[in-house]
Design a protein around this nucleic acid. Structure first.
Length: 283
DNA sequence: ATAGGCACCTGGTGGC
DNA sequence: TGCCACCAGGTGCCTA
C-alpha cells in the first residue's frame, strides 16, 4: 500500500527505535528483492549506527555512521514490523519468523525490525551518503509534493501541451514524486477534475488549485497514519497499515460524498490501473 | 524525447 | 474442496 503518506508513517514509526541506534546484526535471508542486494550488504550494515532516517518520495533513506546510506523501497507489499523490547517502551511479540521475512535488523537497543515483502517488488541498496541525489532511482524524481519546489508554476509547466490523461500525469514520478494510485484518485476528486481529462487541457487556475489539494490530501493521510502510531499494540507492530477513509478509492457504486451530488462512484481502467471518480462532479 | 504496455512476484477473493 | 480468473497501494525497461 505504500504511497508517500504510508512511507512517511513507516519512517516516523521506525525513527524512535532506529535513529541513533547501532545495528548489532543484519540477517539477509535471500540474495535479492526486485534487484540483487548490494555486495556484502549484511557486512556493510553490521556495526553501523543509523544517524538519521530520511524520506525521499516513497524511499526511506537511512544514513549510516560509515558514510553510506541504505535505501529502502517497500514496493507494493513491503512492511516493516517492529518487535523485541527496545527501552521497554514498545512491546509486541512478533511471533516466530514469518514467510517473506527477507531482511531483519537486530538493533543494539533490543529492537528487531523485520522487512517482510511477499511480492518482492521492494528494493534495498547502499550508496555513499554524499551521492544520494545522484542515485539512479533518486535522480529521476520530480519535486517533493510537500516541499517548496512543488508549486503552481511547476505543475502548470509540467502539464503544458500534455495529451496524456491527468491521472497518468500525476502518477508520473518525474512530474511530482510520491503520489500513487490512491492519492491521485483522491486528489482529483477533491479538485473536481475527471481522471480522463488531458493534462494539457485543464484551465490554468484548476491546475494551480491542484497543488494545495495534493498537499492537503497527503497531509491528511499522514496525520491519519501518525495517529495510528500511538497504539503499537493495535497496529500489531505493523507500520504503514492503518484505517483510511477514502472518498472515492475502492468505493465503486457507492454514493458520491460531495454535498448534494446525486452521483455514484465509477471505476474505469486507465493504463491498466483502476481509477475511481464521480462522473457527476468531476469534469 | 516520450507514451504505452509488459514484466517482475505472491496472495486474497469470488465464481463455478 | 478445488480450480481458475482476476485483482492489488510500484516502477524500470523495452518498444514504437
Amino acid at each position: 500500500m505504500p504511497e508517500l503518506p504510508e512511507v512517511e508513517t513507516v519512517r516516523r514509526g521506525l525513527a524512535p527505535v532506529m535513529e541513533g541506534q547501532v545495528i548489532a546484526q543484519a540477517d539477509v535471508n535471500r540474495p535479492d528483492l526486485r534487484w540483487p542486494f548490494p555486495e556484502r550488504m549484511a557486512d556493510r550494515l553490521t556495526g553501523q549506527r543509523i544517524e538519521q532516517l530520511r524520506r525521499r518520495s516513497k524511499y526511506i533513506l537511512a544514513d549510516l555512521s560509515s558514510g553510506e546510506t541504505l535505501l529502502i523501497h517497500l514496493g507494493m507489499s513491503g512492511r516493516m514490523l517492529i518487535s523485541g523490547d527496545p527501552l521497554g517502551v514498545f512491546v509486541h511479540d512478533h511471533p516466530a519468523p514469518e514467510k517473506h521475512d527477507h531482511v531483519v535488523f537486530h538493533m543494539e537497543n533490543g529492537a528487531r525490525i523485520t522487512f517482510n515483502d511477499p511480492r518482492r517488488f521492494g528494493a534495498m541498496d547502499l550508496m555513499e551518503t554524499a551521492t544520494t541525489d545522484h542515485h539512479k532511482l533518486i535522480s529521476v524524481l520530480g519535486p517533493e509534493p510537500l516541499g517548496n519546489d512543488f508549486h503552481e508554476s511547476h505543475l502548470i509547466a509540467a502539464f503544458k501541451g500534455k495529451m496524456t490523461p491527468v491521472k497518468s500525469a500525476l502518477l508520473d514520478q518525474k512530474i511530482v514524486a510520491g503520489l500513487g494510485n490512491i492519492y491521485v484518485c483522491e486528489a482529483l476528486f477533491r479538485a473536481g477534475i475527471s481522471p480522463r481529462r488531458k493534462a494539457g487541457r485543464i484551465a490554468q487556475p484548476r491546475v494551480a488549485a491542484l497543488v494545495p489539494i495534493i498537499r492537503q490530501v497527503l497531509q491528511d493521510a499522514i496525520e491519519a497514519g501518525g495517529s495510528s502510531l500511538r497504539d503499537f499494540r493495535q497496529a500489531d507492530g505493523e507500520l504503514g497499515y492503518f484505517q483510511h477513509s477514502f472518498d472515492v478509492y475502492g468505493r465503486e457504486g457507492e454514493p458520491c460524498r460531495t454535498a448534494g451530488c446525486p452521483g455514484t462512484v465509477s471505476r474505469i481502467v486507465q493504463s491498466g490501473r483502476s481509477s475511481f471518480f464521480c462522473a457527476q462532479c468531476q469534469r
